[in-house]
Amino acid sequence: MADTDEPLIEVRDLVVDYGRGKKVHHAVRGISFRVNRGECVGFIGANGAGKSTTMKALLGFVFPAGGSVRVFGAPAGSVESRRRLGYLPEVALYYPFMKARELLELYGGLQGLSSGELKRRIPPLLDEVGLGGRGESLLKNFSKGMQQRLGIAQAIIAEPELLIFDELSSGLDPLGRHDLREVLLRLKAAGTTIFFSSHELSEVESLCDRVIMINKGRVVTEAPVADLMKPLNVFDVRFTCGEGDIPREFQEFGAVDQGNNEWSLHITDQDAYARAVARMAELGCRIQSTASRSRSLEDYFIDLVRESRDHPAAEAGHHAEALSRP
């Protein structure tokens, strides 16, 4: 969670357009959010939702048509705002004619590290991202996954206070993802602020304190991960309760006759589940099986995108309201 309320990223009513006149495409339509020091925030959305454009606006790669973006209190894109951050682009190739060590010397040097400091930092950094012993290899011989690992190394070489990762684990194999998660957990524990987008929602669940979900250029949900998960608990209970009809209260819970005096209940509220189980015990019902599952962030995300597709005119608030329904 955030150590302080000091915002490292502050986005207000950001609008980013591509093209002009009749061919204008509104990539980002007035989004606002902030990321405070010490937070780990996931930025998720479907393809074309505006995630990469927003991240590019944070770096000053695209220019807002409206609103403002400030990083470390300075206008986005200014040299001052980029001094203390590390960035991993969505897709980037690195200079094929360079060696891994030379590339890190270039990026570290641009971030103000001395050559002595670079000599000290580069070998353990390469080890940490799983490229130990490859410092003298030319990058033209690196696979996509190795380039991504190197990308992570260049982003964290100067131990920045803020990390912005666009598509966190793109191109990484399961081992690479595991290594990356370890790196990020270490950095998070050290107080580094992390803001990243990812299509791997399990990654967002396991790393983030908070999630910002955008769709069609608008923020549709912004909440702590724990809050998003809380209302999504689902309990499936199968039970028998003697001959004949079951008590009316179970019918109110929506019990479904499965035949052979077996009934099933699908409960989406933890308190209701506790009440139902207590009542079953009172009545001497026999619980055959019980399964509880939490809907994942992925379920939530899919529902959101479907809702948006089925009701394209719905406003952000309506999306959130619709999705909060069990």
Partner: peptide, 14 residues
């Protein structure tokens, strides 16, 4: 084309 400009201009260089 190769998007090498992104990590480069993300560093504090004008």
């Amino acid at each position: 084309e190769n998007r090498t400009i992104y990590p480069l201009l993300a560093k504090p260089v004008s």
